[in-house]
Write a protein that binds this DNA or RNA. Sequence first.
RNA 1: GGCCGGUUCGUCUAUCGGUUAGGACAGCCCCCUUUCACGGGGCAAAGACGGGUUCGAUUCCCGUACCGGCUACCA
Length: 503
Amino acid sequence: MSNNNVRVRFAPSPTGGLHLGGVRTVLFNYLFAKKHGGKFILRIEDTDQSRFVAGAEEYIFNCLEWCGIVPDESPKHGGVHAPYRQSERKDLYKQYADKLVQEGKAYYAFDTAAELEEKRKSSPNFQYNNVTRKELKNSLTLSAEEVKELLDSNVAHVIRINMPTDESVSFNDLIRGEVSFNTSQVDDKVLLKADGMPTYHLAVVVDDFLMEISHAFRGEEWLPSAPVHILLWKYLFGLDKMPQWAHLPLILKPDGNGKLSKRDGDRLGFPVFAMDWIDPKTNEINAGFKEKGFIPEAFVNMLAMLGWNDGTDKEIFTIEELIASFSLERVHKPGAKFDYEKAKWYNHEWIKKLSVDSLRPLVIAELEKNSIKSNSTILDNVIDQVKDRCTFISDFVLQAGFFFNRPTTIDTPSIQTKWAENKTTFFNDYTVALADFEDWNGPSLEAHFKQLATDAQIKPGELMLPLRIMLVGGKFGPHVFDIAAVIGKEETIARIKNTIALL
RNA sequence: GGCCGGUUCGUCUAUCGGUUAGGACAGCCCCCUUUCACGGGGCAAAGACGGGUUCGAUUCCCGUACCGGCUACCA
């Protein structure tokens, strides 16, 4: 089934790094759009000028690009509903706020921030609502003349929604079913700020309407303000035009409970942002999955499975498979604790699954970053041999580096514990024998080595670990003789000699 | 505090009223491997509690408890 009228949006505010939860919201939007042949729009909600952070918008685009997600419309990609930055749409919003005031659905409020702050201090549960507004400075309590005077003299003011008293507002959430609120419990949210900018509440409704959004997905933390948005839709554009809402479950911290925050990542030692983010104001650096060595396929796969599954035991999905099987009906209600161990497992699975061709550019880049010049003639062979033992792309440095560079540190202690003079003799003889050995491949080298060991009356097993350490520097890596086969005769002999000299 | 949401192994989850409650991660054990992994096999591990409805509830309803979200001229 496909519906070309499906239009969804992700609407981040450019205030910092792109959080896991944000990426998952993007993903679900994207999957839903592609599934239904619709459009995915990226809108920048930069209505809070005080929280603007330079570079954050570009960073968001980079993260999406890394994940393989391309918006159909955005400030960068354009579109018929441009501009897609709310700050550039500022003049649009006022007319809607004015209309609401004219119709009595909203009102001017002249209370200063300091006055409200004072109120909250004296009564901790203070809310600007259907009760308290009667004793505050607004166009509901002031006379028409006073209001006009204040307005004419440009006294700072906001426009607040006039929440009805004791009415029920309900809507059908695509994930949670019917959710209803009593309007008396909802406060009179600011719609238009004193600086003329809309708040999220007004902007999201106006822009979703103007941009013809059909389905609006956002985190569960937005559920409490839904009645404000529902009412705004009712007043401004009609409920029949309103997008269908879906409030996504939250991604929780691994220990304890509560929303996952970047602090949790720092505290527990894992990334929370998609890519490294350096705050331009504080220079604080937050780790990203990309730089940590995750591959985008795994990152996306892992995120999709946090709160959704296809009903089978299948866990590894390509993005195409996700698109094909995604459905909102299978998105869970409860929040999911983020499990870094499972995230690593996904990455490992993907590294194993990916072809050498797909891995090659990533590995080359990683090796170069560590000043290892990868020899293209053996690189593919090396990748194929070691990828099973790499959880992160960065693991290729350790697992593949010794193929190209001689190990800089040799774990000699592990050799010396069981070393003896006859072994020195054996390896000296071995280098000589190797020089004349022609059948240079793994199995032949192994057979040859074992024969020599037997001849010298030493158990091959006692010699293989030392040989491994001589060639790779430590107790890891693929089969020893396959390594020797790849690095070649000259290098093999050299590494053996070098290590003997250290013993 | 109020409002809203949520509640199956430690974690992510399956279950469209009837199952020995299944899988995966992590953990532990064994096999394979003369390194480390991969791989294979196995063990352990769950329906918050109390009421209903029903021949039968993890599943439907209510209550309680607990957890979370929100409660800004931030999103």
